[in-house]
Each structure stands twice: as C-alpha cells, then as structure tokens.
Nucleic acid binder design. Structure first.
Length: 265
DNA sequence: ATTGAGACCTGTCGGC
DNA sequence: TGCCGACAGGTCTCAA
C-alpha cells in the first residue's frame, strides 16, 4: 500500500478531502479535512501495519487498514464524475490529479491526524516491537522477547510488542517454514535444545522470508488464488518435501491457526 | 504484568 | 430460494 501511494501522494497537496463516514474504528479528529487541505505530503512511511504521512504542517496523517480496508487510486478526469462504490468512506483529491479513495466495509480501519507531541506519545506506536525486516530484529532479540512467556509462540508472534507487523496469515506461514509448532510455548524459543538459538534463528529467517516474498508478490501484482503454503488449506497435503502430513486448523484465542503436526514440532 | 474473552462491523459462504 | 450460524488478513478493553 505504501508503495502504491508514494508516487501519487509524496510531494502532492491535498486539494479536497471528503469524509463520507466519519466513524471508522475511532472517530476522526476535529477538523480533519480542514487540517489536510492545502498541506503537502512530505514522505510516506510504514511502521508495523500503520502508514504515516508527515505533512508540511508538521502534523502526521496516520492510517491503518484494519481487516477490510483498501485504497484505490484513480485519475481525476476533467468533466467526468468520480466513481463511488459502497463503503468509500474517505476521498483525497490530490494536486497530482488523482483521487485516493479509502474503502472499508467493516470499518475497523483508522485515520488520525497527530501533532508532533501526539505522535511521540502515541500509545499504539510507542509499544511496537522491532521491524522484522530491520537489523534490529534477530534471533537474540526474538528469543529474549519470548523469555518466560507462557503463551503459545503463534500468539507471541501476533503480539505487536514482540515483533511489529506480523498478522495471522504470516505468523502461520513463518512457523510452517521454520518447522515450529504454533502450539509450543514462546518461552521454549529461548531454551530450545540443540545449537544455541537454533530455533529462534530458523524462525527469524522464516519471518523475513515470508514477508519479503509477500511484499514482492503484492507489489508485482502477481496474484494467485491462494499463494500460501498452509493458511486456509485445512485438509490439504503438507507442502514440505517428503512430509506427507495433512494441514490442520485449530483455534488459538479465537483466531484460526493452520499447521502440520507432522513437520512442525 | 500477563492472559483470554469479548467487542467492534459488515460481508460471504456452506449447510439445511 | 431463504434463513442462520460460522468465519474473515486487526486491535482494543476489560476482567481474572
């Protein structure tokens, strides 16, 4: 999403902001539109699953897609009306002559406008753990964050304080690649037998792999029906070479986990 | 402090 | 065909 929006939003000005439905996950801040119009987007950054857009006003636009949010970019054609779909909640008309439309059926998404002080103190942003694709994330860091944790490793991976930006799909996919059972206690990572940190190392490597491939797949628009090895594949054969197991679905804290009991221990 | 359950909201799908 | 429950890529709050 960041890569899609960057070319049309960075260095562009908000010409017009339309809020059709001001109640997403949280209410919009006061004078949301008025504080955007006339401002320029300096950069588009991502942190975990948030997009941050620092503006020429020193405020920062904060965006989260929730479960069902999406953006679409369409050219502004002189004399032709914009197409409006169900659940189009926010429209930005930019000086780059595009419309950027936020669509979100479930309205779990979020848009906020933060002053520098609010940005620095933002509780959700402050609590985030390391970015998984940055050098700050490695086997030592992961193992140490998991030390003493009695929760299942799958749930620890979804905890944004431990690692930032992993969701249900990629937590399942990473554990499968690393051959680690999602049911194992997180603490077991820190005390795994064998070479020191071997398990944690396999997991950090797998996390980097699944995320790197996912970003590549999405930004190249090489879409397939189900590009995942285990997610939403209950009952299918495990894709691990020579495994022969069957993908199972279990529920952990109300979320589905897909894994192979045979090759994930 | 940690953990699990429920809440938020709408759409889709499978079974009867 | 129509209804109903289960489930969905996330996060927050509350209570034990």
């Amino acid at each position: 999403m960041r890569r899609d929006l960057e070319p049309v939003m960075v260095a562009a000005r908000f010409e017009e902001v339309t809020v059709r439905r001001p109640d997403l996950r949280a209410p919009f801040p006061p004078r949301f539109g008025a504080r955007l119009v006339g401002r320029t987007v300096l950069r588009l950054e991502r942190r975990a699953k948030y997009i941050l857009a620092p503006l020429s006003s020193d405020e920062t636009l904060l965006i989260h897609l929730g479960m069902s949010g999406s953006f679409r970019v369409s050219p502004v054609m002189p004399g032709s009306e914009a197409i409006e779909l169900a659940h189009d909640h926010v429209v930005f008309r930019m000086s780059s002559d595009v419309r950027v439309t936020f669509n979100d059926p479930r309205r779990f998404g979020l848009m906020d406008l933060l002053t520098p002080a609010q940005l620095a103190e933002h509780p959700a942003l402050r609590a985030l753990g390391p970015e998984p694709l940055s050098p700050a994330f490695n086997a030592e860091v992961l193992a140490s964050a998991c030390r003493g944790k009695m929760v299942a490793i799958k749930l620890a991976l979804l905890d944004q304080r431990i690692v930032a930006g992993l969701g249900n799909i990629y937590a399942c996919e990473a554990l499968h690649r690393a051959h680690i059972s999602p049911l194992k206690r997180a603490a077991a990572l820190a005390t795994a037998s064998g070479r020191p940190r071997d398990t944690a190392h396999r997991l950090t490597t797998a996390i980097r792999q699944v995320l790197t491939e996912a970003v590549e797949r999405v930004s190249s628009r090489a879409y397939r029906a189900n590009p995942f090895r285990v997610y939403d594949r209950e009952g299918e054969r495990c894709p691990t070479p020579g495994c022969g197991g069957t993908i199972r679905r279990v529920t952990q804290n109300g979320r589905s986990t897909f894994f192979c009991r045979r090759c994930q221990r």
